[in-house]
């Protein structure tokens, strides 16, 4: 039995397999619509989330399965003080696979040690969010046709942005990749992420506070939101939240085939005027999230 806690739990070959399967699902949806008939996915969301939960549920429904679960801790036994371990022991008796989001870092790992069914980490605080990374990878694969020889700009909250850390970890395994880290000084990429995934592998990188300066060289621009819930101090959040705003004027500085990704939801960091630019791939990315989760569910249920 396999779990997915961290994107690095998957080899690059397994990621290729998931991407291939997701592409096949997109091309041949009918082939997959009954594979998970009579199977149940439990979505245990101890922290609210719209798109991740709905994309998991849509994924299971499109595979012919059913879903059950809760969408916030207050509607679960966690509000009565039940531990993650106990919740998972009980739920794994009812479902065939579990997707868990929890505000505490490491909660899905605890769940994996107690569960009789596969656990998918659907986000644990500021730590990991591997299915978002799979979504990002599928989008890069479909939009750029390769993971190699890409210059990837990551912009915004690189300190608390778990999707950024996971994407760097995943992309650092491909050849010819270069990172451009664009953030305010206060939200710089943590030293250990840089040390573990960039410096130790000799991957070229640049660090800058200027989005405009970085844009011309990028093949992929990964924008992120400064997340209020990651700050203990409201003042710091207010000061930093609008550090970067991508506008049509700034897009003129970018390559004609650059793509803009964003894990969504966005607030102000991408002007809605950019949405009509064909390089704005973030809504296509959100759609890809469902397909890659379908592929992942199939893999963990050993259907592929």
């Amino acid at each position: 039995m396999r779990h997915l806690i961290n994107i690095l739990d998957l080899t690059t070959e397994e990621i290729d397999q998931l991407v291939r399967t997701a592409c096949d699902i997109i091309d041949n949806p009918v082939k997959y619509r009954d594979i998970c008939r009579y199977k149940k996915l439990a979505t245990l969301f101890f922290e609210p989330s719209t798109r991740t939960r709905l994309s998991f549920e849509a994924a299971m429904l499109e595979l012919g399965g059913s879903v059950l679960g809760f969408s916030e801790a207050s509607s679960s036994s966690a509000s009565k003080g039940e531990s993650v371990a106990d919740t998972v022991k009980v739920v794994s008796a009812y479902a065939d696979i579990i997707a868990m989001r929890h505000p505490k870092e490491g909660a899905p790992m605890v769940a994996a040690t107690k569960s009789d069914v596969p656990i998918i980490n659907a986000g644990d605080g500021g730590h990991y969010h591997p299915t978002q990374t799979l979504t990002d990878l599928l989008t890069i694969a479909r939009e750029k046709g390769t993971f190699e020889n890409l210059t990837i700009g990551l912009c915004g909250d690189l300190k608390f942005g778990r999707t950024v850390h996971s994407l760097i970890a995943a992309m650092s395994r491909y050849t010819g990749v270069k990172f451009v880290l664009i953030s305010p000084v206060e939200l710089k990429l943590p030293g250990y992420v840089k040390a573990d995934y960039i410096k130790s592998k000799g991957i070229p990188y640049e660090q800058t506070t200027s989005l405009e300066a970085a844009l011309p060289s990028l093949d992929v621009l990964y924008m992120t939101r400064v997340q209020r819930e990651r700050f203990f101090n409201e003042e710091d959040y207010l000061r930093l939240k609008d550090s970067y705003v991508l506008t049509p004027e700034k897009m003129q500085l970018a390559k004609k085939d650059m793509i803009v990704l964003h894990p969504l939801p966005r607030v102000n960091e991408i002007s809605t005027a950019v949405d009509d630019d064909p390089r704005a791939a973030y809504f296509r990315q959100a759609k890809n999230g469902k397909y890659i989760r379908m592929a992942l569910i199939l893999k963990l249920l050993e259907e592929i």
Partner: peptide
């Protein structure tokens, strides 16, 4: 923020 701070 670690689960070990709350999990029994």
């Amino acid at each position: 923020r670690c689960i070990s701070s709350v999990e029994q």
